Amino acid sequence: MATGGRRGAAAAPLLVAVAALLLGAAGHLYPGEVCPGMDIRNNLTRLHELENCSVIEGHLQILLMFKTRPEDFRDLSFPKLIMITDYLLLFRVYGLESLKDLFPNLTVIRGSRLFFNYALVIFEMVHLKELGLYNLMNITRGSVRIEKNNELCYLATIDWSRILDSVEDNYIVLNKDDNEECGDICPGTAKGKTNCPATVINGQFVERCWTHSHCQKVCPTICKSHGCTAEGLCCHSECLGNCSQPDDPTKCVACRNFYLDGRCVETCPPPYYHFQDWRCVNFSFCQDLHHKCKNSRRQGCHQYVIHNNKCIPECPSGYTMNSSNLLCTPCLGPCPKVCHLLEGEKTIDSVTSAQELRGCTVINGSLIINIRGGNNLAAELEANLGLIEEISGYLKIRRSYALVSLSFFRKLRLIRGETLEIGNYSFYALDNQNLRQLWDWSKHNLTITQGKLFFHYNPKLCLSEIHKMEEVSGTKGRQERNDIALKTNGDQASCENELLKFSYIRTSFDKI
Results as ranks from 00 to 15, higher is better:
A198H: 15
T45M: 08
L99P: 01
C243G: 00
F275D: 01
I146L: 13
V108C: 04
N117T: 03
P249C: 02
R41S: 15
W278S: 07
R256H: 04
E238A: 13
Q287G: 15
Y30L: 14
C153N: 02
P36S: 04
I201Y: 13
V218Q: 13
T320D: 09
G58C: 01
H302Q: 14
L63K: 03
N195V: 11
K176W: 09
I158C: 04
I146G: 01
P104L: 01
T194I: 14
E231T: 09
H48G: 01
V218T: 07
I62A: 01
L64R: 05
P220H: 03
Y94R: 09
L44D: 08
L327N: 10
I201H: 14
D169G: 12
D184W: 14
M125V: 02
A119I: 00
N195M: 11
I201G: 13
C234R: 02
T329I: 15
P187I: 10
H290Q: 14
V281W: 00
P271Y: 04
E71Q: 03
N179F: 06
S161P: 03
C243Q: 00
G142M: 01
I62K: 00
C328M: 01
G95P: 00
K191P: 08
I306H: 02
D75H: 05
R208Q: 15
C228A: 02
T189E: 13
N170C: 10
P313R: 10
K310L: 06
T107E: 04
L289I: 15
R69C: 12
I122G: 02
D247V: 09
G132M: 01
L50N: 01
K80Q: 05
P249E: 05
T211F: 12
D177N: 13
E314K: 12
A190V: 10
C196M: 03
L152T: 03
C234Y: 15
F285C: 04
T250E: 04
T211D: 13
D184I: 05
T107A: 07
C252P: 00
T267P: 00
C228E: 02
T211S: 07
C223R: 02
G58I: 00
P334D: 04
N325P: 04
R298Q: 03
R74H: 14
K100P: 02
C35M: 00
I139K: 01
T199N: 10
C153W: 02
C328Y: 01
P36M: 06
E57K: 02
P316G: 01
T229L: 11
K191N: 10
D261G: 02
H212P: 14
G111V: 00
I146V: 12
H28R: 07
L233Y: 06
R92H: 08
L128G: 01
D159M: 04
C243Y: 00
A198W: 10
K67V: 14
E181A: 13
K191R: 10
L102I: 14
P316W: 01
L81C: 01
F116G: 11
D184H: 07
R162H: 12
C35N: 00
I306C: 02
E231N: 03
D169E: 13
I139V: 08
T320A: 08
D288I: 08
T68M: 10
C228W: 01
R162Q: 14
L102V: 14
N309I: 02
L50V: 06
V218A: 09
H214A: 14
G232A: 07
N150K: 10
M137I: 03
G227A: 07
N295L: 13
Y304K: 02
F275H: 08
K310P: 01
L106Q: 00
K292C: 09
P334H: 06
V305Q: 03
C53I: 03
C209E: 05
I172E: 07
C215L: 08
L233N: 13
Y118V: 02
T85Y: 02
I82W: 10
A156N: 15
C235D: 00
I109K: 00
F205I: 08
D247W: 05
N117I: 12
T68N: 03
N175R: 07
A156W: 06
S77I: 10
G188S: 10
N309F: 12
T229A: 04
C315Q: 01
K176M: 11
H214W: 14
L233M: 05
V265N: 00
T320S: 05
R279V: 05
F258K: 02
P104I: 01
N42V: 07
A190E: 04
L233P: 03
C239Y: 00
Y273K: 05
F205M: 07
A190F: 08
L102A: 03
F258A: 06
S284M: 13
L99K: 00
I84E: 00
Q299E: 15
E238R: 04
N105M: 04
N105D: 04
F91L: 05
V206H: 10
G95F: 05
P36T: 08
M65C: 02
D288H: 06
H307M: 11
G227L: 04
Y94D: 08
W210K: 06
E180Q: 13
S112F: 04
V265F: 01
T189C: 10
L155T: 11
F103Y: 01
L164C: 09
D184P: 04
G188C: 13
R256Y: 07
F91H: 08
F283P: 10
W210V: 05
D177L: 10
E151W: 07
C215N: 14
L332T: 06
K80W: 05
D277A: 15
R263H: 00
E130L: 04
S244W: 10
L120R: 01
N138P: 01
C252V: 00
N52A: 06
T45L: 12
A254D: 07
N308R: 09
Q276L: 08
N295C: 07
K129N: 04
L240F: 04
